[in-house]
Design a protein around this nucleic acid. Structure first.
Lengths: 200, 200
DNA sequence: TCTCGATGTGTACGGTCGTACGCATCGTTG
DNA sequence: CAACGATGCGTACGACCGTACACATCGAGA
């Protein structure tokens, strides 16, 4: 039977799943397609991942870790002197202008959580994870909005087939980081966010 | 054969498709499931819609029209005295707090465009359509950012299972509508957006 | 060494799917 | 009324899928 000793097969299956989703989309993900991509027999996939949701959770988690690592490596986000908006806009630009398949893959897995409850905790983790990182340089409320805006901009780029405009993104992010002063109102007082105004 | 004369069958199939997607998701959409939902024989669906993409395009277009109609009916967006941010936040709140299935359905069809090129023009139409409406009260650049932020906030709500906070949304929208004044810089001069500052 | 659980392999079953195709029926046009 | 295209209906085929299951093999501990 030529049994193969393969202690890292589980990891290879995850990698194969990511490649399959990147090439054919989630709709093309199946035990068989992953098995073929990883060059393992069908039964092996059902052993390591009892159902497809398990496999997708693992893939999404790995994709998230990859992104988180990219954020860490970027570094500028930790520098208190850096312009957060510019850093975020640049980081997003590098990510979205890299291999398009990777971006589509992450978004597809991310958005699949809408219908697959098993994926939602992982997607939520990513949301709050990135927001937490950003919040260290602003405040939780602002951070959430920054992440939301970035999400929306990425979606617009992907859906309309347009190009990513780093300057535009930076400017819009900066707008969110400036707290307006409606007459007689304190900005977002319920969260204890520090009061800030636009620079200059 | 008890043939049924049914001149509005095509429309009924679209309605059935929308119900199916709302209940089982896009993954559950098939000629057969739609036929069963609409109570028509299988062959009828393949006649009116040669492939599933055609059917999804029709469904997404109809969903978009429904949303556009809701926007029109809201009215406040046309009132030059109204607070646009508040109007948008309220409108979104009504939409997202309504029947959850409807929201998930629209987003699922909307996001399916990532992988299905046939859907992308329709999704793009919706993007620029809403942005155009909003742009009549601000400027194109700001409008795009407002729509992106709303998209991102809706996604966060749907993915994390959280609740929609109308006040929070309004405040963040207002931030975007305020143009920051970095030292020695003019706000978004390349698009001819009117110069505005935060009120008060 | 023996045993047993973990891991790997091959195959088979029942189900759903997209699509094609032949035929039936209707409305319309000549 | 005859013909013809549009529309409706039923069925069948080949493909893919998830899952289950029996068996083979390995590693580690008793």
């Amino acid at each position: 039977m030529a049994r193969r000793y393969d202690p890292e097969r589980r990891q290879r299956l995850i990698d194969a799943a990511i490649r399959v989703v990147g090439r054919k989309g989630i709709a093309g993900l199946s035990h068989r397609s992953v098995a073929a991509e990883a060059d393992v027999p069908l039964g092996s996939t059902t052993y390591h991942f009892k159902n497809l949701d398990d496999l997708m959770v693992a893939a999404l988690r790995q994709a998230n870790e990859g992104f988180a690592k990219a954020v860490q490596n970027h570094g500028g986000l930790e520098d208190p002197q850096a312009d957060i908006a510019a850093e975020l806009a640049q980081l997003t630009g590098e990510w979205i202008s890299g291999e398009r398949t990777g971006v589509e893959l992450e978004y597809e897995l991310y958005l699949a959580a809408l219908r697959r409850p098993a994926l939602r905790p992982v997607a939520a983790e990513w949301c709050v994870g990135v927001a937490d990182i950003v919040a260290r340089r602003t405040d939780p409320v602002t951070a959430r909005a920054l992440v939301a805006l970035l999400d929306g901009i990425c979606l617009q780029v992907l859906l309309t087939g347009g190009t990513y405009d780093e300057d535009y993104t930076r400017q819009m992010l900066q707008r969110i980081m400036c707290v307006p002063h409606p007459p007689g109102t304190r900005p977002a007082p319920e969260t204890g966010s520090p009061e800030r105004t636009c620079p200059g």
